[in-house]
Amino acid sequence: MLSIKNLHAAVAGNEILKGIDLEVKAGQVHAIMGPNGSGKSTLAAVLAGREEFEVTRGTVSFAGKDLLGLAPEERAREGLFLAFQYPVEIPGVNSSYFLRTALNEIRQHRGLEKVSAMEFLKIIREKLQLVEMDEKFLKRSVNEGFSGGEKKRNEILQMATLEPRLAVLDETDSGLDIDALKIVANGVNKLRSKDNAFIVVTHYQRLLNYIIPDFVHVLYQGKIVKSGDKELALHLEDYGYDWIKEENSRSERW
C-alpha cells in the first residue's frame, strides 16, 4: 500500500529525514517511535504534503501512485489521512459542514454519490458514538475552544467518517489522560480491517498497550535505525532511547 524508498527531506535547508525506507501493507499497523527531534512528525508531515518540507531525494508510492506528486487534497482523496498532532482551530467554519464537504469530496473522487445533510447526520451519529462525543459538537466551529482531548477525539471522528486506506496518527496520544487514550485506541481498533493500514507515530509506549502494532520502528536522526515487533516497544519503555543513541554513535565512529 505504501512504499517509502530512501526518503530525504529538509526544512529551511536543514535535512531532517536522511534516507527512510518503509513498506506498509494492507491490514498492518506500524508504530514509529523515537526520541524528540528524530524526524517522526516530519515524516508524517511529508506524507500529508505539507509545503514547508522539501523532499530532496527518494520516492513514496501510495496505492500505486507517486504520492509526492499529489497535492495534499489529492492525497486525502486517494485515501491518506493524517491525524494532526496539533489540530488547527478554524473559527467560523462549522464542524458538520466541514466534515460533510470533506466526505463528499472524497466520495466524488471515488465515484460515489454525494451524501445529503440528512444522510450525513445518520452517518455521523454512528461515528460520534465510536469516539463518545456529543452531537452538540457538530454545531461548533472546527476545533474552536476544544480541549486537547476533544481535539484528538475529533481527529479520530474525522478518520472514522472519511474511512481512509492509510491513516497516519501523529502523536495522537500525547497529552491524553487514560480515558481519552482508551477512547482514541478503541476508535482505531474498531476501524482496523484487512483493507486498511495505520502508521502510529508516538513518543510513548503506552498507546501501544491498546493499539497492538505488527511492527515497531525506531527513528533516530532521520533514519529508521531499528525495526522489530511490539517487544521492541516494551524494551524502549524499560530502557529508554539511550542505548539506541549509543549504538548509533558507536556505529558512526566506526
Binding site: V93, E105, V142
Partner: peptide, 28 residues
C-alpha cells in the same frame, strides 16, 4: 491562516475551496 488551509486540504478539500471557506468564515 495557512495552517487552517492545510488542515482543510488534508481532509480532501481543494485549496480554492479551503480559502473561500476561510474567508466566508471570517465574514460569517
Amino acid at each position: 491562516n495557512k495552517d487552517g488551509i492545510f488542515y482543510l486540504r488534508a481532509r480532501g478539500i481543494s485549496a480554492d475551496m479551503a480559502k473561500n471557506l476561510m474567508i466566508q468564515a471570517f465574514a460569517g
